[in-house]
Amino acid sequence: MSEQPSVLLGYLRAMWVIRHFEEALDDLFGRSLIRGTCHLCVGQEAAAVGACAALRADDQINSTHRGHGHFLAKGGDPRRVMAELFGRATGYAGGRGGSQHMAGWDIGFLGSNGITGGGIPVATGAALSAKLQNTGRVVVSFFGDGATAQGAFHEALNMGSLWTLPIVYFCENNLYAMSTPLRSHSAVSSIAERAAAYGMPGVEVDGNDLLAVRDAVATAAARARGGEGPTLIDCRTYRFLGHSKSDKREYRTEEEEAAARRRDPILRFRALLLEQGHASESELAAVEEDARNLISEAVEFAQASPLPEGDPSAKVYAP
């Protein structure tokens, strides 16, 4: 398949947007300018961008505690995601949600989720809607390797396959669940192997290779849309930073981290574009600069936004 340079540059830009968003947050948290906690996806950008690149605009995704990248990759406005993190009225959830609890219905982002594995059945339900209402939509559920130990994972994949629902189960396997390595929380070393138990294809993919991720999801989405049911994707990647802001990463070696950094999905993709002549060095630099500026503006927007006011109990029930 011949690749359009403008599309490829769009992928690169989307990854830089996520990288700068997350690095800005790391800095803001470090300076205590944002409350609470958050889970950053630096190093995992190709998973989010690659997967969303394979989807139609009206397809839907849902996500986890580590969800900023998914939201942005699906088309979320960085200003409003940032404002939500700052607890501002202009945030996607008007400040009621915060890092792990926001959604963008208009762009098909069915929400991040503070409960490990909790979103997998919910996404399966969205796929049930898509099937019963013949919308032609596909749903992608993102979750971590740790979430595959939850009963919700097993229950949802069984139903998704049993009912041949249009869904892609996308495991962002960064080899750790907080401090616990995959080998200590999973009886099998490949998440993809688990697919056999549900009668669906299980696919391993290099999660730091954006085009490989995109193509794997495109195949799975086509299968789902064609009425053949779900696929489980085991997307191998690595989180560069700590699990959350308090994590000193004492459970991993510096060598392991350095090796992972050499597989940086953004630098790798950037080098590929240069090498294959899709873009010049100055074009590539401009794309990054553009992303950096977008995030600076997002931070300014968030900081200038008003705090939410009024009765916090006012929106508990739908009218």
Binding site: P121, V122, G125, A126, S129, L132, Q133, E155, N158, L162
Partner: peptide
Amino acid sequence: PQRVINTPISENGFVGVAVGAALTGL
């Protein structure tokens, strides 16, 4: 059977599926 759906014995799972279905139009 499209509207009267027997589920496996997965209470958390099928309640979650119902939540997702409710969020998206059913």
